[in-house]
Amino acid sequence: MTSIASERPERFSVGRAFSNTFSVIGRSFVPLAAIVGLFSTLPALLYNIWSFRQIAKIAVPGASFEQSAMAGYGAVSMIAGLVLLILAFLAQAALVRATIEDLNGKRPSIGDCIQIALRSFLPTLGIGLVIIVAMFLVAMILTVITMAIPIVGGVIALLSLIPIAMWLISISVAVPVAVQERPGVFASISRSRALTKGSRWRIFALFLVLGIVAIGLQVVFTLLFQAAIASGGISTIGLIAAAIGSSLLSTIVSAVISVAIAVTYVELRQVREGTSVDELAEIFS
């Protein structure tokens, strides 16, 4: 296994980032699978088994499902979603280490990657909370505007999707910065904005392609699950199979995006600063 070229590229390349993402996954599939299995697949599987059982009860014609049960389902789902999001950030931290090691021509160590993720837990969690709070406030503001002035507010909400997407792209490498450079939560976000400046539309194109593929796969899976219920319900074995399929799909997508974020960070460091992969790896030694 050899490291990628260390010469400084002129600009961020969507094709190179896309190719390096899947090259990393192909070369280091086993450690990557172990990391996402621990942080994502297993927790998602436990939640999905429970969730699909509740959905199946709701979907059965003539079945009664009390309002309190619905409220309980919503509360558990919200808590589970937050837990899974936190674990996803931890997985991304571990995958940053694995990606840099792979690109440097080494075989990532599962234990080492997990240690890096745990060491970076607080700043990673802080970045996640900043993003969640910011998106919640934006959603609340747009909801109020839309309700106050329906037509104009709807147009404003639609037009705001572009700047929101660009803001998310601008902070997309904040977790790799926090793991690699350890400057703190807000400094990591600021550093990410500096690194992505001038490359945001190309980064957007990369994640747009990955997002479209992910949405397409999710839609297909959802339609198949709904068709199974509509055809006469779904058995316990079917629920377990659906839960496993959904868990695998979500964690595979999450893993690909996390590796792509790490690859994007490495590429941006090379483009803007000429930093080689072996120099990036030195901080962990």
Score class of each variant (00 low, 15 high):
7 E>L: 15
9 P>Q: 05
10 E>R: 14
12 F>E: 08
13 S>K: 01
15 G>Q: 09
16 R>A: 13
18 F>R: 08
21 T>M: 08
26 G>F: 03
29 F>Q: 02
32 L>T: 03
33 A>H: 02
40 S>A: 12
46 L>D: 03
46 L>C: 08
47 Y>T: 10
47 Y>N: 08
53 R>Y: 10
54 Q>R: 13
63 A>M: 11
66 E>Y: 08
67 Q>F: 15
73 Y>C: 01
78 M>N: 06
82 L>K: 03
100 I>S: 02
101 E>R: 10
101 E>T: 13
104 N>C: 06
107 R>T: 14
110 I>K: 02
118 L>F: 13
122 L>P: 05
126 G>A: 04
136 F>Q: 09
170 S>I: 06
172 S>F: 03
175 V>N: 02
178 A>P: 14
179 V>M: 07
180 Q>P: 00
181 E>C: 07
191 R>K: 12
193 R>C: 06
209 V>Q: 04
210 L>F: 09
219 V>N: 07
220 V>W: 15
226 Q>R: 11
227 A>T: 05
227 A>W: 09
229 I>Q: 11
236 T>W: 14
238 G>M: 09
242 A>L: 15
245 G>Q: 06
246 S>L: 10
249 L>R: 05
251 T>A: 10
252 I>A: 15
256 V>D: 00
259 V>W: 00
259 V>S: 00
274 G>D: 00
275 T>D: 08
